[in-house]
Design a protein around this nucleic acid. Structure first.
Length: 197
DNA sequence: CAAGTGATTAGC
DNA sequence: CTAATCACTTGC
């Protein structure tokens, strides 16, 4: 499979990138070089300056959000609720702080490694949420800022999910975002058992 | 359903 | 400096 080129991420329309990421595969090799990967089945778009749900709302530029201002094609990983990491793909041109949150993947390679990292969990719970998939894939603060054309984390081409198989809905966990709460900027593969609740 | 957990942020 | 908040998960 082909590693996605940087142009994929610098495309103008982040909503379209969020849809196109469905069906692609996220790969994070472990320390021994074993392939640990999952097919992306759920994403959410965060549209920077205008979007009240985005960390980069109003072009807020802090140590944490800094990386979102980079050109598309790098990882934005942040820590929430004192326990969990969340993995995002930075999109858009330089100084356009857009990102796409990967909310769920379906295990592909290295499922044994994921089971070990996640503890005793039914397989369908291994990667079915943004915090869970970071544990399963071994994503942490060291992943933040990595270029997706490098050797530590990348995304490969995969099946194209037809629009008829994509479900759009409001985003999760952003009750503070007023009129943006209901924007249909969350995308899932219909009827896939690995999407989050 | 509610607790847990600590970085990040804004506000003094 | 302090305090509130949070793009979640798990176990009651």
């Amino acid at each position: 499979m082909r590693k996605l080129p940087s142009e994929f991420f610098t495309h103008d329309d982040t909503l379209e990138i969020a849809r196109e990421l469905l069906g692609k595969t996220l790969i994070v090799p472990d320390l021994k070089g074993n392939r640990v990967s999952g097919k992306i089945v759920e994403t959410e778009a965060y549209l920077g300056p205008e979007d009240k749900a985005a960390h980069s709302h109003n072009n807020l530029r802090t140590k944490r959000t800094e990386i979102m201002f980079a050109k598309g094609g790098v990882a934005y990983v942040f820590f929430v609720y004192g326990m969990y990491y969340q993995f995002n793909v930075v999109t858009g041109k330089m100084n356009v702080p857009h990102a796409v949150l990967i909310r769920a993947v379906e295990p592909v390679d290295g499922i044994e490694i994921m089971r070990e990292r996640r503890g005793k969990m039914p397989d369908k719970n291994l990667t079915s949420g943004p915090g869970k998939l970071c544990i399963a894939l071994g994503i942490d603060k060291n992943t933040n800022g990595l270029n997706l054309s490098g050797e530590k984390v990348w995304i490969e081409d995969g099946e194209n999910i037809p629009k008829s198989e994509i479900l759009a809905s409001g985003r999760i966990g952003i009750d503070y975002a007023e009129e943006f709460v209901e924007k249909p900027w969350r995308f899932c593969v219909k009827q896939n058992p690995f999407v989050s609740r």
